[in-house]
Design a protein around this nucleic acid. Structure first.
Lengths: 205, 205
DNA sequence: TGTAAAAGTCTACAGGTGTATATAAATGGA
DNA sequence: TCCATTTATATACACCTGTAGACTTTTACA
C-alpha cells in the first residue's frame, strides 16, 4: 500500500489525456494563428503537439470542432478590448500602443483576432468566428460604451483593430510594418479615443 | 466567293484567344473575390469561363500568375482611393459612403481590396497583394496627402478601409452588416477626414 | 499480478489540388 | 482544297486533405 511513495520526478511525459488535449489545443492555436483555418493541416497540428493526426479527431471530433474550441479558448484569454480598458482614461490611451507592440504571432492579447482574420476566407470558419466575436468582444464593448450608436462604434473599434492587424501582420504593408510604433500610436490614439467617447459631429451632414 | 455572304449573326462564340483570355480573367476575378486565392480552384475558375482547367494554365502559366494578373487588372479599375477624391473636399466625404454602399462582392470599386483580404491567409498571395498595393494605392495616396507622417496616414486609411471590409463582408459582424449605412458614415466620415487632413494632436503624449 | 479500459498509432480511403503531356478540333492562309 | 497553326480538351500524375476502422501500447484498478 506504499507503492505510490516514490513520486517519480519527471517520467518523460506520461500518458495523460488532459495534458495531451491541452498540447493539441496549444499547437492548433499557434498553427491557426499562423496559417488560418484552411492553411493549417491536422497532421501539422498533431505534429506540433507530438502526437499523430488521429488523436486530434479523437479528442475534438473534427477539425471544425477543434477550431471552435481554439477560438473559445482565446476568447477566455486576456485581451486589451475589455470594459475596464475602455472605461479607464489611463488605459484607453494604451490600446493603440498595445496594438502596435504586437509583432509576434502567438501568445498575444490579440491572438484570437489574428486567428479569425487568417481564417476569414473560409466560410465555415468565419461563421464560427463571428459567433465568437459577437458574444465576446462586441458584447463586452457594447456594454462598456456610452452615448449614441454604441453597437456601431463598438464594431468600428473592432474593425480598426482588425484593419491594422491585417495590413500590418498579414499583408505586411511596409509603411506600417517598418514605421515607428510611436508615430502610429500618435495617429491611432485619437481615433480610438473618439470612437470610445463617441464625440460625433453635431451636424449629420 | 460568296460563301461568307451569310454573316451568321451570333456564331455561338467562335474560337478567339483574346476573348477566352478575358473570360478566364473575369471568372477568376469573381472567384478570387468570393473565395480567395486558396479557396478558388482552377477547375472552378475555368468552368466559370466555359473552358477546361488546362486552358487557364495555357494562357496564364500557373494559378499564381493568374492571380497576379487579376490583381493587376483590378488595380487598373476605378477605385475610390484616388488622389482626386482625397484632395477634393466634396469627394472625400463620400469615401465613407462608398465604402458602405458595397454589399455585393464583385464589380465594386473595392474588389481588388476584397480579393486581397480573402487571400491574405495565403503567404504567396499576400506577397503579391502587398507589392500591388504598395505600388498602387499606397503610392497614390502618399503623393496626394500633405503634412506629417504621410506614409503612415496613408497606410492607416487603407487599414481602416480593410478593417471595415473584413468585419462587414467577410466576418459579417451584424452590428456592421445590418446597421444603417448613414450611421456608419456619420462615424467614419470624421475619421477619414482627420486621416486625410492630418490634424494630429499638438502634444505627442 | 492479471486484466479491462484508456491512450495512442498505423494503414488506408475517397476526394480534391495544381499541372504536365498527349490528343483532338477548328481556324486561316496557300 | 490542303495543311500548318492555333485553340481547346482528355487523360493522368503526384501530392495533399480530413477522417474512419483496426490495431498496439500503456495505465490503473482488482
Amino acid at each position: 500500500m506504499d507503492k505510490k511513495a516514490k513520486d517519480e520526478a519527471v517520467p518523460a511525459r506520461r500518458r495523460n489525456a488532459a495534458t495531451t488535449r491541452d498540447a493539441i489545443l496549444a499547437s492548433a492555436r499557434k498553427a491557426f494563428a499562423q496559417s488560418g483555418y484552411d492553411g493549417a493541416g491536422v497532421r501539422e497540428i498533431a505534429a506540433g503537439a507530438g502526437v499523430t493526426a488521429m488523436l486530434v479527431n479523437r479528442y475534438f471530433g473534427s477539425k471544425e470542432q477543434l477550431f471552435a474550441e481554439v477560438l473559445a479558448a482565446t476568447a477566455a484569454s486576456p485581451t486589451i478590448l475589455t470594459a475596464e480598458n475602455l472605461k479607464s482614461p489611463a488605459l484607453r490611451r494604451t490600446i493603440a500602443s498595445v496594438l502596435m507592440d504586437i509583432t509576434k504571432v502567438d501568445d498575444t492579447p490579440l491572438e484570437g483576432f489574428l486567428i479569425m482574420l487568417h481564417s476569414a476566407s473560409s466560410k465555415r470558419a468565419s461563421e464560427i468566428g463571428r459567433a465568437q466575436i459577437e458574444s465576446g468582444h462586441q458584447k463586452t464593448m457594447t456594454a462598456a460604451l456610452r452615448g449614441e450608436l454604441v453597437p456601431q462604434r463598438a464594431a468600428l473599434i473592432l474593425s480598426l483593430v482588425a484593419g491594422v492587424q491585417v495590413m500590418r501582420q498579414m499583408i505586411g504593408l511596409s509603411a506600417l510594418a517598418e514605421a515607428d510604433p510611436k508615430d502610429l500610436v500618435k495617429i491611432l490614439g485619437p481615433m480610438f479615443q473618439s470612437l470610445i467617447d463617441g464625440d460625433l459631429p453635431a451636424k449629420p451632414d
